[in-house]
Design a protein around this nucleic acid. Structure first.
Lengths: 210, 210, 210, 210
DNA sequence: CATGAATGAGCATTCATTCAT
DNA sequence: GATGAATGAATGCTCATTCAT
């Protein structure tokens, strides 16, 4: 009885403590992964960054991989929610692209800012790089967006799979390249990526003066 | 005199054996990396795939990473040499792109054929995926090619860094996508990637009939 | 409240277990070192003598050397505390020597008894043989004792460093020799060493009858 | 026939080459042992210091221990031959002691000079420290010398075993101590050790002025 | 639920030794 | 007899995971 009452009284606190522990582990993992790479990191490395005991880790995750996945999904989800806003407001293909690239490049910049400042060589995009079911879902969302926008404009896309892949490829590589430049110019990257995807390299080259 | 000849004969055999062993380790590593991923793989996994003894590994490589690097460089070099032929024959930007994408997609297909058939989920491009000095060199080569071809055509590229990044991004993602389709259609991928890069998505969408 | 009490009970048990494990490792190491020599011994040899698991060793010591050192210091400290009593009661140089030699030879005998009975060829004095900072401290203690006792007697020692070295040398070699005789005669060894150090070999040789 | 003749022609050369190889290994071992300690040293370390191949080592020695023993015996033998000269010329106990201590301290100094200059922390007396049959032989030789000299002087030693042990103990510790002082004063050490052994500490202490 | 010591499988690596050449 | 690559047993050590408290 006593125990039960106590348990119920505590349940709120406990739930909060549980959530806090889970978050603590995730945050520690994020830092450790960034600092030494997810592959080199060990569960011990993560738990050491925490004030929890080794065994406690296993109350929340079954393995390092599970943490990694959780972290990755978290990242993807963050981007996905941004993409959802974009989708809602998209009118033309070009407008959609601009908004989507903008969302991605901003996201990339924000996510890496914290890590890069801390001198974290392995930072580069834990959340969005990995080949997970979540990432495939994002691919399909974008493809659907493309098709939807195209349809609205009375267009038929030749190969939406390839188009989506290309859009994503541009985002990734141009995004990485953008991060290496100082100052980081997301607006420029958005402009470039959108122009290239819409009109090709032709418009990006100018006839030289003699 | 006699001794010298004999010694050379011997060292010939030995040298051949050494080279063979090195190759055996590399080949085993390629398979192991493909099967279980380079990070999960251990030196033991590699040497087990071989009929060599554990210690022998260390006569040839100092660590798993060294094997990985050797393998990666090997792959990049193979592609680089193809790229060199392309460069030699490039006339216009479009011709260069077509040839380069063709080189890459064919390369991708060949390299992965063997691995995919063996059911190797981690196959996807050890040689060309990793972020090595070699890869940066390839990036710069392509950028230089772009600038050279542009100059020949009397054009000035707006941002050769971003352009190169975009071209590579398209290659990577469209390439991966291509591999997932059956039958693998490299020619179609080449056509798509070239068109997109040159003219943008506009030309790839057709006005729908009502 | 309850929890606190419980925790202390638990930690008590744990603490006891930890101490017991540490002792078990030390004792096992002592035996193994005695049996096969500290250099030939491996961590596995030590842990095998224990009912602990291999990894547990590293919860207590970082290496075999650390165990060795702990063991050596332990031995030296045991002897040092005996020497402290001797010092407290020393009046003349001869009295000090007698007491110190007695302390050492008894110590030597006791420490090696257990080991020799078990047929341990490498027993001979882990604790006092090695060249550690602890041993140097003992050297300096003895030298200080010499000077102090001499001063009390109104004497000035010619070379306290050499004198200390000589006293220790005699202790070591005569002590080892003593251990090889049956029955072990510590009293005789004390008498001999003291006489030799005080008066030289002259008093130990008697004129032969014709 | 041909082969035989060739072999016989070479036999001289070969014998010399064999001896040279053996010496090369011994010398390399001496250096390696001095540099890193005999226990830490490996056969590889030794052979690396040589221009011989790994396998060649085993044509001359069966193991590192055998080299060590050879080296140790060599050292003891060198000292033994000096001791033999001493013995030949010894008249009184004091004269013998003086000569023997002199022989040992000089020997110690010479053997370690080369090593210490090269910055070899592990040098300290490979040749004379170890507990080998050879060392026991030396012990017995000295004991016999003691008895012989005593007899010549019409004396009877109380306990020649302990006396010998004491003399050796003094030699060892005073010798080590001597090596630590700069400049190394072998003459002083000889004087001290002889005086102490002959007359005890009494003569080495002087009454203090009030 | 938290704790943290124990576990023991598993890994990288070294090394003495062998042996085909 | 010399060579030096191959061998594979052995070692130190780490780490994910368990479980008594």
């Amino acid at each position: 009885m006593d125990a039960r009452v106590e348990q119920e009284e505590l349940s709120g606190k406990r739930a909060r403590a549980k959530a806090a522990n889970r978050q603590a582990i995730l945050e520690a993992a994020r830092q450790v992964f960034a600092r030494m790479g997810a592959d080199a990191a060990t569960v011990r490395d993560i738990i050491r960054e925490t004030d929890l005991a080794a065994g406690t880790f296993y109350n929340y995750f079954r393995s390092k991989e599970e943490v990694f996945e959780a972290l990755a999904n978290e990242g993807v989800q963050r981007f996905r929610s941004r993409l959802a806003s974009v989708r809602a407001r998209a009118t033309s293909l070009e407008a959609y692209l601009k908004a989507a690239y903008s969302a991605y490049f901003e996201f990339l910049n924000e996510e890496n800012e914290e890590a890069i400042e801390r001198g974290a060589p392995h930072a580069a995009m834990i959340g969005v790089r990995v080949d997970t079911p979540e990432m495939h879902a994002v691919f399909e969302e974008i493809r659907a967006d493309f098709e939807h926008v195209a349809q609205s404009s009375g267009l038929s896309l030749s190969d939406s799979g390839f188009l989506t892949a290309a859009a994503i490829g541009i985002a990734r590589e141009v995004g990485d390249h953008m991060l290496r430049r100082r100052p980081v110019d997301t607006a420029g990257a958005v402009e470039f990526a959108t122009q290239l995807f819409m009109n090709g390299a032709g418009t990006l080259a100018t006839t030289r003066k003699k």
